[in-house]
């Protein structure tokens, strides 16, 4: 089926569980949207929030971070640490004004090829409906401050700052 907009989705996955899960989906000939670009890491604990930021800045419309279920981490606790880090990072992005619907987290084990397909399909459909993410890429074209307040609604808040 042809769509007007094909979102770019970047998936940061751990090599032991989700990557193997995605691999299983492939070898099982399951069909899912090709919008997702998979980037493999040793562990979700290695996935720095900077990577997410960079992906948004370079034009990703949606991001998926996925790794081993709690208790299954190849390095014992990498995903527990990642869980905290991403819980906080989400809140930061939300505070900055990023729509969290564009950032998905999941646990997908090596046996869950089906779950991988489901998550990627759902995310792709969701992002497709939302349209392209331009807030970060638009910034790249902007230069220094103009000193102008673009939004009257913000004026009251500025006055307080």
């Amino acid at each position: 089926m042809k769509h007007d907009f094909e979102p770019k989705i970047v998936a940061f996955v751990c090599t032991w569980c989700t990557y193997a899960g995605a691999d299983l989906a492939g070898t099982s000939r399951m069909i899912y949207p090709s919008n997702v670009r998979v980037v493999k890491f040793p562990c979700t604990g290695r996935i720095d929030p900077v990577f997410i930021l960079k992906a948004f800045q370079k034009g990703a419309d949606g991001i998926l971070v996925s790794g081993c279920h709690p208790g299954d981490c190849h390095y014992m606790a990498g995903n527990f640490h990642a869980r905290r880090r991403f819980a906080v990072f989400r809140k930061l992005l939300e505070f900055i004004g990023v729509d969290l619907n564009r950032l998905e987290f999941s646990w997908v084990s090596a046996a869950e090829g089906g779950k991988w397909v489901e998550i990627v399909t759902d995310l792709t459909q969701k992002i497709r409906k939302m349209g392209p993410l331009t807030q970060f890429t638009d910034l790249a074209d902007e230069e220094q401050w103009s000193g102008a307040l673009s939004n009257p609604e913000l004026k009251a808040v500025y006055d307080q700052v």
Binding site: F95, I96, V98, Q135, W145, S146, S150, L154, V157, Y158
Partner: peptide
């Protein structure tokens, strides 16, 4: 006040500040 804003408006706020 910031918490009560929509994400889009908060983005505007921070964009102005960081710019």
């Amino acid at each position: 006040k910031l918490d009560a804003m929509t994400p889009a408006l908060r983005w505007e706020f921070w964009k102005e500040q960081f710019t």
